[in-house]
Amino acid sequence: MDYISSEELARYEQIALMIAGEILRGTYNEGERVSGRTILAGQYGVSPETVRKALALLQARQVVEVVPGSGVIILSRQAARDFIEDFHEHNSLEVLERRLDTLIKQRNKLNAEIDKLVKEIVHFKTGMLKNMQNAEEILVSPGSPLVGKSVQEAQLRTVTGVTVTAVRRRGRWYASPGTELRLSAGDLLLVVGNQKAVDRLRRLAEGKPALTDG
């Protein structure tokens, strides 16, 4: 059973549980007459009104009987046990419901963040597809100076002005190739750029001399 913490109880509920616990432990015996509200308030360090509410809870469950002007009579140890078990069971359910409500709110917030992220991804992919429509494929020849170099090492964006979005090797695509992927003869480069930049890279990939601007 998932018991609630003392911080989640009202003070008078804590006192009622403490008195019931004292009865279970034998501190107070059945038929015994114990001190009145004022003295009990001093023992537990609370106000007489708090003790009154606590005793009202216990009296409603026939754990004790409050006799005005005479004190408190302990009625039943078993009733004290039942009170403690029922109280925890009832209030633990409330705690679980509050936790569930909190988790639902967190889930809703997370779902909203997921929806936002999905929209951003769709937007990003849509932009990529538009770029792909203008993309071209360039084959790396055996005599190309690109062989053995990564895209970063070859500084293709700086040298030619194109962006290499992916590399295809033996039927497998490598998106956004990093430094660990070194180009080989037969690699197919998927590139995006203006026609002049693409032509520069094509000559470089074929091992031909670069064209001079003029």
Rank of each mutant, 00 (worst) to 15 (best):
L201N: 04
R81K: 14
L103E: 15
G193R: 06
R25G: 04
E206P: 01
D86N: 12
Y3R: 14
L110R: 15
A175S: 11
A112K: 10
S141L: 11
Q195L: 15
V63N: 11
T165R: 00
I23W: 04
I121P: 08
E180N: 12
N111K: 13
D115F: 14
Q43W: 06
L57T: 03
S176M: 12
R37I: 06
I84K: 05
E94K: 06
M1G: 05
M18P: 01
A166D: 11
I4P: 05
G214W: 00
M1L: 05
I138F: 08
K125A: 13
L57R: 09
A185D: 06
Q195D: 12
I19R: 01
G31H: 01
T102V: 05
A54Y: 07
G71T: 02
F87L: 09
W173R: 14
V192L: 12
K196A: 15
S6M: 09
N134A: 09
L156D: 09
E30Q: 10
P209D: 13
S6A: 13
Q62N: 13
A60V: 10
A20E: 02
A135E: 11
P68Y: 14
W173S: 15
L103F: 10
A41T: 01
N134L: 14
G171E: 08
A166R: 00
A210G: 13
L96N: 09
T165P: 08
S70T: 12
S35A: 15
R170A: 09
K208P: 08
L139M: 06
E94C: 07
H123W: 10
V159S: 11
L189N: 08
R107S: 07
V159G: 06
E153P: 01
G21C: 03
R98W: 04
I73Y: 09
K125G: 06
Y44L: 13
E13Q: 03
P177S: 10
I74A: 00
T126L: 07
F83T: 10
D199P: 01
L129Q: 11
L9S: 06
G171A: 13
E153G: 07
A205R: 02
E206G: 03
L189W: 03
L100C: 09
A41L: 04
D82T: 01
Y44E: 05
I104C: 14
I74E: 05
D86S: 15
I4E: 15
K119S: 15
G214C: 02
I39P: 01
E22L: 03
Q59F: 14
G178S: 13
E97Y: 04
D2M: 07
N134R: 14
L188I: 02
Q152Y: 04
V192G: 07
L190F: 13
L40C: 06
N111C: 03
F124N: 15
P48T: 05
T163K: 00
T179H: 14
E49S: 14
G71I: 03
V34I: 13
G69I: 11
V95L: 15
T212Y: 10
E206Y: 06
